[in-house]
């Protein structure tokens, strides 16, 4: 099973994603980071294959963390999960920084799993 790290300051979004990932049968959630800095640390300790990360977080935001992760770890695949997905500039910036996809909130379980399985 592929290891997934969830990064979101919202407890409720993390709960939703952990549930979707846990019930999928082909992914396992290895942790929950609450901001970009925690995500970078947990990427080192948990070694996930996929990171699902919010953009808008207090402390280090998702795009800053993505910029660092893209340099530090060429293997990990990052998918942004954000309410700002429909903002063209943010979406394009995320792809340019190396995100594999951007999922807009509100999301549906089958959409999240289709995107994770396509990675």
């Amino acid at each position: 099973m592929k290891k997934v790290l969830v990064v979101d300051d919202s407890l409720s979004v993390a709960r939703q994603l952990e549930k979707i990932i846990g019930e999928s049968g082909d992914f396992i959630c290895v942790g929950h980071a609450k901001n970009g800095a925690e995500a970078i640390k947990m990427n080192h300790t948990e070694d996930p294959e996929i990171i699902c990360m919010d953009m808008n977080m207090p402390g280090m935001d998702g795009l800053t963390a993505l910029r660092t992760l893209s340099v530090m770890d060429k293997e990990v695949k990052v998918v942004m999960v954000t309410s700002l997905g429909g903002v063209g500039d943010k979406f394009t910036e995320a792809l340019k920084l190396g995100a594999k996809n951007v999922i807009s909130k509100p999301f549906e379980a089958d959409n999240v799993l289709r995107i994770l399985r396509a990675l």
């Binding site: 309410s83 063209g88 979406f91 792809l95 807009s104 995107i115």
Partner: peptide, 13 residues
């Protein structure tokens, strides 16, 4: 299920 632009929709799908 959210406000999107066409390019994003195509990648998300």
């Amino acid at each position: 299920m959210a406000v999107k632009f066409f390019g994003q929709y195509l990648v998300e799908q």
